[in-house]
Computed example of a mutant assay.
Amino acid sequence: MSWTEVADGVFARRYDELDLTTGLVLGQDRCLVIDTRGDVDQGAEFAAAVRELTELPWSVVYTHAHFDHAFGTTPFLPCDIWAHPGCLRALLKNGETDKQKWAAHYREEGKPEIAEAIERTGLMPPDRLVPDRAELDLGGRTVALVHPGPAHTDHDLVVHVPDAKVVFAGDVVEHGPHGFTAYSFGPDDQLDAWARAMEALLALEPRIVVPGHGDQVDEAFVRTHRDGLLRLHELKTARASLEDALRDSPYPEDVTRAALGFS
């Protein structure tokens, strides 16, 4: 794990566990923490790491409701927590079930300490909701929270730091070995809508895009995978056979199967 200053006063912190990337934006009066990791212990480590850089009061934003991005918040309290309304709905509906699922997953992986930490974790629903767009004044720096449309979830938020030309994309953008991984996709994903969300991100004209997983990327990377999503959408719409899809997809077999719903 390490901090990378991607622009003046704008930091990304990348973790070995799930190759997760979190963020921090500093203003003169406040700072903004982007995602909080996956359990109370991981959140405590991240909060301590933030305090190595700044003593400014903080706000938290969830890019989306998945456990690895939004379950580590209790060590940051008290704070305001920003998210899309759909994130609140997802946490209230699925949060406790997700805790059980991921605790079981880590026990099966032979990581009982993470499983136990997840079980001890209290979920913190957001209290500042952003249906479309909101601007946060951090003191000498304004940060925009933008819902680009449905993408990885129906409630993604990206964090735009205009003066630094940086966008924290959450899982709207991932930087796996092939851009996406098989875990990027769910059964209800609308691939064309996800491509449009990437287009909305590109309209912010970022110089640097920080994905929810992996190292920072540029606009060209986002364009490539916007086009890849559109190609997957074409194959899905055409009801391509698995053989044809694997031949024509720009992605490897595991990603193509997951994106197109082949078991």
Rank of each mutant, 00 (worst) to 15 (best):
M1N: 07
M1C: 04
S2V: 02
T4L: 13
E5L: 04
V6T: 09
V6I: 02
A7T: 08
D8Q: 14
G9M: 14
Y15Q: 03
E17D: 06
G23Y: 11
L24M: 13
L26W: 06
D29V: 02
R30P: 04
C31Y: 05
V33F: 01
I34M: 14
A44Y: 08
F46V: 02
E52P: 04
E52R: 14
E55F: 13
P57V: 03
W58V: 01
W58G: 12
V60Y: 03
V61T: 15
T63A: 05
T63E: 02
T63Y: 11
A65S: 14
F67Q: 05
P75L: 00
F76Y: 00
C79P: 08
C87D: 06
L88W: 13
R89N: 10
L92Q: 09
N94T: 00
G95R: 07
G95S: 03
G95A: 09
K99I: 02
Q100A: 12
W102L: 07
E108T: 15
E108I: 12
G110P: 04
A115L: 02
E116D: 15
R120Q: 10
G122H: 12
P126I: 03
P126H: 01
V130N: 06
L138N: 12
G140N: 06
R141V: 13
R141Y: 12
R141L: 12
H147E: 03
P148R: 01
T153G: 04
D154L: 06
H155L: 06
H155Q: 13
H155Y: 15
L157F: 11
V158H: 04
V161K: 06
V161D: 05
D163Y: 05
V167P: 03
D171A: 13
D171F: 11
V172P: 03
E174M: 13
H175D: 03
G176D: 09
H178Q: 14
G179V: 12
A182T: 14
Y183T: 15
G186Q: 08
G186P: 05
D188C: 02
D188F: 05
L191W: 13
A193W: 10
A195V: 07
A195N: 00
M198D: 07
M198N: 14
E205Q: 14
V210S: 04
H213F: 00
Q216C: 13
D218K: 02
H225Q: 09
D227L: 12
G228N: 07
L229H: 06
R231P: 06
E234N: 10
T237C: 07
R239C: 14
A240H: 01
L242I: 00
L242W: 08
R247K: 15
S249V: 00
S249F: 01
E253N: 11
V255Y: 02
A258W: 07
L260F: 08
S263Y: 07
